[in-house]
């Protein structure tokens, strides 16, 4: 029905982080295909980002928020360990109290997991509209490779059944899931740990490729049937490589490849990529989306854009405008302050 994206205005360049750790910035930019990443303001967190994106989604959908029957918020950085972000979001968009709500966590794919849950509720006629949000102020340990990519941002999608308001239809979704310890963060730990190179082949590539191929098998689609493809983007290199391995061209993925400019927004990454693709997609075009969450799993979606999409763009600010206009660069010390890594005592 509609979508909304929010990315904080602050950015830190790869060069600024590399300078602190005496690393080769150009080598990192090339190997990770990333230029800079987004950084939250001092008073922003996964909940505030989720609310900003959710409000934009309600505005874009043009519906009465009281008709939303479910709100799911996926994040690795929920502000509370116990107390839902989803209740904050549902109150801030004004859903009323007759609403199902829950927080989700599945590393970087909790936002698309929420999308599948909402689909089920709509298909079983339990709700009219449902919202899924992927939002994160991503954590990366200082000095770790993740520090160059862990960004901040989120996206919200409102799903509904049929009707003239729909901008796109989800034709099919499947998931590929296994217990793969490629990336984790335990209760109380400030930063995630990961298995280094193990996160690549057994983690990201195996799950992304398997889910996408499963979708192909169950639908009969092939890469050339899609006008666009969006893959989870922990950096700029992985989605480019996985697209190539699956038989997609760089032209098909370029619109949804956002990480090089804002970093990996974890639960927000695939959804922001989808939003950026919907910004330019035309009626009848097909979009493949395959998310990935460490731990590990991938959700794959085949989506077809409807004839309503152009009329509904109206005042919607495209993702690429959101991330390129009004951005402000911070140095490493201000970055630490925004991340609350240094505090006044």
């Amino acid at each position: 029905m509609g979508y909304g994206v929010y990315v904080p205005i602050y950015r830190i360049r790869v060069e600024e982080i590399a300078k602190v750790w005496n690393e080769d910035a150009e080598g990192i930019k090339t190997s990770l295909n990333i230029v800079e990443k987004s950084v939250q303001d001092k008073d922003e967190d996964a909940a505030t980002i989720a609310v900003q994106a959710a409000r934009r989604a309600v505005s874009h959908a043009g519906i009465d928020a009281r008709e939303i029957g479910a709100v799911y918020v996926g994040s690795e950085s929920h502000p509370y360990a116990v107390k839902p972000t989803a209740t904050i979001v549902k109150e801030a968009i004004g859903t009323g109290n007759r609403v199902m709500a829950a927080d989700l966590e599945f590393a970087c794919k909790a936002g698309t997991a929420g999308m599948q849950m909402v689909m089920g509720l709509i298909d079983s006629n339990m709700i009219k509209y449902g919202m899924t949000v992927g939002s994160d102020t991503a954590q990366g340990r200082p000095g770790d490779a993740l520090e160059y990519t862990a960004g901040a941002g989120g996206a919200a999608f409102i799903l509904g059944k049929g009707g003239s308001g729909n901008i796109a239809e989800i034709l099919k979704t499947v998931s590929f899931t296994s217990d793969t310890p490629d990336f984790w963060r335990k209760e109380g730990a400030s930063f995630p740990s990961h298995g280094g190179r193990f996160t690549g082949e057994p983690g990201y590539f195996n799950h992304t490729i398997s889910a996408t191929k499963m979708l192909f098998e169950e639908t009969g689609f092939k890469p050339s049937d899609f006008d666009y493809a969006v893959f989870h983007q922990p950096n700029g290199r992985f989605p480019t490589n996985v697209a190539k391995q699956l038989g997609f061209t760089s032209e098909q993925i370029k619109n949804g490849l956002i990480t090089p400019m804002i970093g990996n927004t974890y639960s927000g990454a695939s959804l922001i990529g989808l939003a950026a693709t919907l910004d330019v997609a035309m009626p009848g075009q097909k979009i493949l989306v395959t998310s990935f969450g460490s731990g590990a799993g991938s959700d794959s979606f085949a989506i077809e854009v409807t004839e309503n999409i152009e009329a509904r763009r109206g005042s919607l600010v495209p993702v690429r405008d959101i991330i390129s206009k009004n951005k402000t660069y911070v140095d490493y010390s201000i970055y630490l302050k925004h991340k609350k890594a240094i505090k006044k005592e």
Binding site: D41, D43, E44, D45, A47, T48, V51, Q52, R55, P79, Y80, I88, A92
Partner: peptide, 20 residues
């Protein structure tokens, strides 16, 4: 208006969100 955290809380306190 935008939606933000209002103030700095101690680790165990509730977070106050509101308009800015």
């Amino acid at each position: 208006t935008v939606f933000r955290r209002m103030q700095t809380e101690d680790k165990e306190d509730l977070i106050r969100y509101q308009y800015k």
